[in-house]
Simulated scan of single mutants.
Amino acid sequence: MTATGAAAVVATDVHKAYGDLKAVDGVSFEVAEGEFFGILGPNGAGKTTILEIIEGLREPDRGEIRLLGESPWPRKMALLPRIGVQLQASSFFEKLTAREQLATFGSLYGVGAAKVTDMLELVGLTDKADTREDKLSGGQRQRLSIACALVHDPDVVFLDEPTAALDPQARRNLWDVLRAIQDRGKTIVYTTHYLDEAEILCDRVAIMDHGRILAMDSPASLVRGLDAPTRVQLEPGVLPAGEAEQLPGADEVSADDAALTIITRSPAKLLGALSERGALGGLQVRTATLEDVFLQLTGREYRA
């Protein structure tokens, strides 16, 4: 974490309702300068609404937002050059190449050609600089969208589900871009549905549902607080289930055609006992993840 301790974003008891729907219901948090802060939650949790309020795109019903020490609403022209925004759906100018897109966005802030070239290199699009936007792949278009949000060198970058609908390779490629952005000292506030990437990228996360923050901490601290057992899986036939039940540290044993599963809260003891018996064939160990925290807090039902 490269946060400096000073607050780039402060949200205090923020509310936003649409009729009877409380999209944001008393949300409070701070984001330090240089921090990578994630807002997680199921569909309809209020993630995009709170992000748009912080960006100054929506007025809160009540509560206070301070963005780089100022209120973003009503919109302040002096704040705009200091923030970069990448929305869920990005629109580009028709028939322009990647370089021309960036140059056009940059011209709004007086950015020169050298900065455009730097941004193309940062997001890995140097070899696509002269390719039209509509000829780029989905991952390349997302990287171009992020470059447009960064071309004027903002202090705070807002990314709303930047890896949505990308294939695994493109998504991981974009992770490198996001790390490079933070390495430049930028504050990043982003929303995502992908808990694995939030666990890897974020210094802290806030888990939202029904307009409220249910938990907020570093991913590692949230996982530790869950106090979930460890699951150890072995290939079928490596060890009889009855013998597995007698192993030190084995709390629960189940077996099927695919695997023998042992649930334990003392994994060191259990793994030591398995090693002594030479029963490590096909061993897989699964500890709790941020996904487990998320599901415990928000439930498992599907929401469209």
Results as ranks from 00 to 15, higher is better:
2 T>G: 15
5 G>N: 00
5 G>M: 10
5 G>R: 13
7 A>Q: 03
7 A>P: 01
13 D>T: 04
14 V>G: 05
15 H>V: 13
16 K>E: 09
25 D>R: 11
26 G>R: 07
29 F>H: 07
31 V>G: 00
36 F>L: 08
38 G>P: 08
40 L>C: 06
45 A>G: 07
46 G>V: 00
46 G>A: 03
49 T>F: 12
50 I>F: 00
51 L>E: 05
51 L>A: 01
55 E>A: 04
57 L>D: 00
57 L>C: 06
57 L>N: 02
58 R>S: 00
59 E>F: 11
60 P>W: 07
63 G>I: 10
63 G>R: 09
65 I>W: 06
66 R>F: 08
67 L>N: 09
67 L>W: 05
70 E>T: 10
73 W>Q: 00
73 W>H: 09
73 W>T: 09
76 K>P: 03
81 P>N: 12
82 R>C: 06
82 R>V: 13
95 K>D: 00
95 K>R: 08
97 T>F: 07
97 T>R: 01
97 T>Y: 01
104 T>L: 11
109 Y>M: 02
111 V>I: 11
113 A>W: 12
113 A>G: 01
117 T>P: 08
122 L>F: 09
125 L>D: 06
127 D>F: 12
133 E>I: 15
133 E>K: 15
134 D>E: 14
139 G>H: 10
140 Q>D: 03
143 R>Q: 04
150 L>S: 07
151 V>Y: 04
152 H>M: 11
159 L>P: 01
159 L>G: 03
161 E>F: 14
162 P>G: 11
163 T>I: 12
169 Q>Y: 09
171 R>I: 12
172 R>L: 14
173 N>H: 14
176 D>G: 04
177 V>M: 08
179 R>Y: 02
179 R>A: 05
181 I>Y: 04
183 D>I: 00
186 K>N: 08
189 V>T: 02
189 V>C: 04
190 Y>A: 02
190 Y>K: 05
195 L>N: 07
201 L>M: 06
203 D>A: 11
203 D>V: 10
205 V>P: 01
207 I>W: 06
211 G>P: 02
212 R>N: 00
212 R>T: 08
215 A>G: 01
216 M>D: 07
216 M>K: 02
217 D>Y: 03
224 R>C: 12
229 P>E: 02
229 P>R: 15
234 L>D: 04
238 V>R: 15
241 A>E: 10
243 E>N: 12
244 A>I: 12
248 P>G: 02
248 P>I: 07
249 G>E: 05
250 A>Y: 06
250 A>C: 09
252 E>K: 15
255 A>Q: 13
256 D>F: 10
264 T>H: 11
264 T>K: 14
267 P>G: 00
270 L>Q: 01
272 G>F: 05
279 A>F: 12
280 L>R: 06
302 Y>G: 06
304 A>F: 09
